[in-house]
Amino acid sequence: MRYYLRKLAFYGAALWGALTLNFFIPRMMPGDPVDILLAKLQQRGANVGPSARRAYELLLGGNTNDSLIHQYFAYLGNMLHGDFGVSVSDYPTPVATVISSSLPWTVALVGIATLLAVLVGTGLGMLAGWRRGTWLDSLVPATTVLAAVPYFWLALILVAVFAINLGWFPLLGGYDVSLSPGWNGAFLSSALRYGVLPALTIVISSAGGWLLGMRNMMVSTLAEDYVLTARAKGLTGRRTMVWYAARNAVLPSIAGFANSLGFIVAGSIVTEQVFSYPGIGSKLLEAVQNDDYALMQGIFLVITVAVLGANLLVDLLYALVDPRVKANG
């Protein structure tokens, strides 16, 4: 119980930290984002009233008479209501709507790809560590090349080979635009086909890291006394490998998930850009290019919340796979 409370408190603090960071960054930077934003809005024919201006000032700072503290709490209030203002690039859609329409794409893509990468990586890592010194193990150094490849460059190469040269997969986008999005077979299969290359990019470049980590932990774990005991007990190789070695070796990978997730999110943003995937990464860059600060801030917060949520989930799961954490708090 204590473990769960501590985790919840930590992620609460992390969320608060991110919100605060989000509040102060635009205020600390040179330039006046509100004016730029409002100028853009007017270009698009928006009728910018004082209330809209005030909302942006709360978000980004600027010429306001309120004290910083007052601004801060008003800003927190807006954030908690999900009120991020109106997007410039997709005027007049509210930021919240833009985010909620693109978020599912990213969550599905990154979620599935990460899951695959983790399964493939740790699975192969387990085998490589178990069969140490065999051909499988000798492939391990090669995976470091994959881990060192920039995501988007790998994406470019995949596009060049599979989309342009071979024509197996579509070049850009998230689905066939002639279809209307919905829960129907045609759309889903199209989305799947469009998702293969982006997902493959993420899997190929992140699986290597999982593989290496798992392999090294397997090697360390195999020297533990309990693995020796399992062998002395005459257990089958499979049971020893899975329940004695891998079961313990996987723990640091899970505990270090937070570290990996940062890389994955970073990679997927750039990958989405290459594929013009209709996810949140593309939107973020679109926002950056259009000086759409409101959207940018909103997306940053949403990504942060998603990452914090995923980490929290993994931490909570960790308590289930390692009985020791609850005892140690």
Binding site: N22, I25, I299, I303, N311
Partner: peptide
């Protein structure tokens, strides 16, 4: 560690 790095860098870069 838990606050995603690249989105933060992008946001900071965008304001500069």
């Amino acid at each position: 560690l838990v606050i995603p790095g690249l989105p933060l860098v992008i946001v900071i870069s965008a304001f500069v």
